[in-house]
Structures are given as structure tokens and as C-alpha cells.
């Protein structure tokens, strides 16, 4: 059989683009961020994505995993992904060095409906690495602040060390455009901000649900309790958004494994409103 070299313009949805790791940042002891650039110039120039969309990163020989693109959509210098070490492929990603090649299939999935959020107050609630899907949206909204009302971020982590994007958080704390509340699970020395589990802190903050959208991302258990609190506070279902995770393989709605009810997380998600989720009879957490 004749072997043909694939040009990158192909429409083979399984064939990744080759990208180079430009920079590796240690976010927390278990999480790194990779900044990558697609090798093909034309592709890279035309690359566009929306906040919330994901990409499949391959270390060839190990496999492919899904991560949210957490650099700003306006950032034309690199794409950033944050990776927590959990399985074979994430370990392989952790072992990369700057300059190495990886595969990228992106952008995939849906995104936060930021247009329909214009004119509204937004409260972001992110736990641990759950801050990653929020980051591109926060940056976008800060860049377009005139279109949005008040922005609030509740960032939660186990310990002070476990916060991702520490520089961003610091910068946002000093910004007048966004109010930042940080909390850790249990008290510890030298920590002067909030202490307590994310849902509890949220409840004590008593955010007013009027004209406000709540967006929450984090580990399943945190999402579960945060949603309960939000409902208790009077947020309507269609004003609450979250992102979900499932084991993914194809990322294009073919391989069948990422379903929650009739929805495929890879194409119908990862962003869902609570209203959509409640319409699926199968429990999503």
C-alpha cells in the first residue's frame, strides 16, 4: 500500500497536529502547565478557540488525554494546558522537557456562552485545577469588562500550595475589575484569607442571585455541593453553568464512552447549564 505523507490540511479527525512545548510551569507539586505552539505556521496563524473549549494532547506511544485550553483566546503566542499527574499519559506529559514534540487535536467541544452573559454579574467558583476552565473566560471578560457587570471569583484549594495560577490570582486581587475570595480547606499558618470548604464559604458570601450567573468547576464532589448551595441561594437552573469530565478517547462523538445520558461530554460539553443537566434523567455526578 502506498504511504502518503499527510499534509496538515487533511480532514482526518483522528490525526493530531504536531506542536512544540515552549515552556513548562510548575503550578503546584502535582500540576504543571504546558505552553505549546503548533508547528505548522499557517495552522497556527489561523488557530482560533473559544473560552471553555478543550484539546486532546498526545504523547505518542502513551496515548491521548483531554485538557481545557486555559490560555486567553486573545493570546496568540502559545496555548496553555494544565495537567495533573494521574495516569500514564499525564505522567508522560509531566516528563516532557521544553522543545519536545507532542500531538494536539483542538479545539474540541463547546464553550461558555459568554455573549449571552453580557450585562450580567458573574460569580466564578473554582476548586483546585477547576480554575483552569475558568481562566480563559475570566481573562476574556476582564479584557471586555465594559460588557459585563460585577465579576467575583471564589478560588478554593486544599492548601495554599495547591492553588493553580498563583500569579494570576495575585494580579486579579489587585485589580479593581474583579473581586477575589480565596479559601483553603483547613486553617494553616501564614494564611490570612478565608478558611473552609468551597460550598460553605460560598454560602457565607451570600451572593445575590439577581441578574447573576454562577459558573463552577472543580472535582465532582465539590460541584455537587456547590450546586446545592447555589440552588439554595436562589440561583435559577439556567443561570448556573459547570464543566464536566468523563473519560474521553475520540473527542468527536464517535467512540461512545463519554456519554451522560444522550449527551456526549466531548461534543455537547464540557460546558453545561444546570438546566440542561437536569433534563438528562441519568445522574451526572
Amino acid at each position: 500500500m502506498e504511504q502518503e505523507k499527510i499534509n496538515l490540511e487533511n480532514n482526518n479527525p483522528y490525526l493530531p497536529d504536531i506542536a512544540t512545548v515552549k515552556k513548562i510551569i510548575n503550578e503546584t507539586p502535582a500540576i504543571i502547565s504546558l505552553q505549546i505552539v503548533i508547528d505548522d505556521d499557517k495552522k497556527w496563524k489561523n488557530f482560533k478557540f473559544e473560552p471553555g473549549q478543550v484539546g486532546q494532547l498526545s504523547v505518542f506511544g502513551f496515548g491521548e488525554s483531554t485538557f481545557v485550553i486555559n490560555s486567553a483566546p486573545s493570546n496568540r503566542e502559545y496555548l496553555q494546558f494544565s495537567i495533573m499527574k494521574a495516569g500514564v499519559n499525564t505522567t508522560a506529559l509531566h516528563n516532557l522537557t521544553e522543545g519536545e514534540k507532542i500531538g494536539l487535536r483542538a479545539p474540541l467541544g463547546n464553550w461558555f456562552p459568554y455573549k449571552s452573559m453580557e450585562g450580567k454579574k458573574i460569580i466564578f467558583i473554582g476548586g483546585g485545577i477547576g480554575l483552569a476552565p475558568l481562566r480563559p473566560l475570566i481573562i476574556y471578560m476582564l479584557e471586555n469588562k465594559h460588557k459585563y457587570d460585577k465579576l467575583t471569583l471564589l478560588a478554593a484549594a486544599k492548601t495554599p500550595d495547591d492553588f493553580c495560577f498563583k500569579d494570576d490570582i495575585k494580579a486579579w486581587e489587585n485589580s479593581r475589575d474583579i473581586e477575589v475570595v480565596s479559601t483553603i480547606d483547613t486553617a494553616c499558618a501564614l494564611w490570612e484569607k478565608e478558611t473552609g470548604l468551597c460550598p460553605n464559604v460560598l454560602e457565607s458570601m451570600q451572593p445575590c442571585p439577581e441578574n447573576t450567573i454562577a459558573i463552577t468547576c472543580g472535582p465532582p464532589i465539590m460541584i455537587k455541593y456547590t450546586l446545592e448551595v447555589l440552588l439554595k441561594l436562589g440561583f435559577p437552573e439556567d443561570m448556573i453553568y459547570t464543566t464536566l469530565e468523563r473519560r474521553m478517547k475520540c473527542g468527536i462523538g464517535k467512540c461512545g464512552r463519554c456519554n451522560i445520558g444522550e449527551k456526549f461530554v466531548c461534543v455537547d460539553g464540557p460546558v453545561f447549564s444546570l438546566k440542561e443537566l437536569n433534563r438528562i434523567p441519568e445522574p451526572f455526578i
Binding site: Y14, F60, G63, E64, K254, G256
Partner: peptide
Amino acid sequence: FCFNLRDEQKNLKG
């Protein structure tokens, strides 16, 4: 129609 995607590598090729 469900399927899995997997990599296999030997030396530099896979």
C-alpha cells in the same frame, strides 16, 4: 459502535 484508541511503540516507531 464503541471503540478505544491506543498507542503502541517500539523504539522510535509506533
